[in-house]
């Protein structure tokens, strides 16, 4: 029989380490044998809720198709043809596409959710443009949404891999806002005036950029961070 050198408790032969303090069992007279039967089944690392994804999707489809059908019927009864109902129907379709990845997937959920959301939003806005006319989708909206999606995925994977931590996350978030605002401004100006120049986005970029730089500085400087914690702790 082995005892924990820290806690003093006797350990069951099936324990590789003390369950109280995680100290490994080192007993030359009775080395740990992983083939010994355990007293309890081992706790799984993570157990997901057993909800059937297809049931959830079917429920979502029914819930979304009821208001879509009502819109369609009202539009047809009132106008005798489709005038406005394709807008809400498109929106319901966009919501359905958006919930597909988080419900059905188990791996890379964030990446596929962002991809599906950007894709669904692009499809919907293209539909709106097709119904109302204009060129704004391919000139402004599509590049901005694509950029936003790529930046969100890049930021999420940086957080997951531990490259972005603590105050670095809001600093990078604000930087992302700066880049997207700049892209929107440049694309709109280029479309309207055929010139590439910065206009209103400067008012967003300057405060966001300054705050982002400050947060990044605090994030990188351990002494400054500790001093701020000392002064501002609750």
């Amino acid at each position: 029989m082995s005892y924990c050198v820290h806690c003093g408790v006797e350990l069951a032969p099936s324990e590789a380490r003390c369950p109280l303090c995680q100290t490994p069992v080192v007993d030359p007279a009775a080395p740990y044998d992983p083939t010994l039967p355990r007293e309890f089944p081992i706790r799984s690392r993570e157990q997901r809720l057993e909800i059937n994804p297809w049931t959830t999707l079917a429920l979502a489809a029914v819930l979304l198709s009821v208001p879509a059908l009502i819109c369609l019927l009202i539009d047809l009864l009132a106008n005798g043809r489709l005038v406005w109902s394709l807008y809400p129907i498109g929106a319901f379709g966009m919501i359905f596409l958006g919930i597909l990845p988080p419900v059905t997937l188990r791996k890379n959920v964030f990446f596929w959710t962002v991809a599906a959301d950007v894709g669904a939003l692009c499809l919907y806005l293209w539909l709106v443009q097709s119904l109302s006319g204009g060129e704004w989708f391919q000139t402004v909206v599509f590049p901005v949404l694509l950029l936003l999606g790529i930046m969100l995925v890049a930021m999420a994977s940086s957080i997951r891999q531990g490259m972005l931590k603590g105050l670095g996350i809001p600093a990078m978030g604000l930087l992302l806002i700066c880049v997207v605002t700049l892209a929107v401004d440049l694309l709109i100006t280029a479309t309207l005036t055929a010139q590439v120049r910065i206009t209103w986005s400067a008012f967003v970029m300057i405060p966001c950029g300054i705050i982002s730089a400050m947060l990044w500085l605090v994030h990188r400087n351990r002494a400054l961070r500790s001093e701020l914690k000392r002064k501002l702790h609750l």
Binding site: C7, V9, E10, L11, P19, L20, F40, I42
Partner: peptide, 21 residues
């Protein structure tokens, strides 16, 4: 941990097992 260590200090031998790896 605190409770079982206290019982050990009180002179009560304790044997533990768990469902952890």
């Amino acid at each position: 941990r605190n409770m079982l260590r206290f019982l050990i200090r009180e002179g009560i031998p304790v044997r533990v097992s768990s469902n952890q790896e």
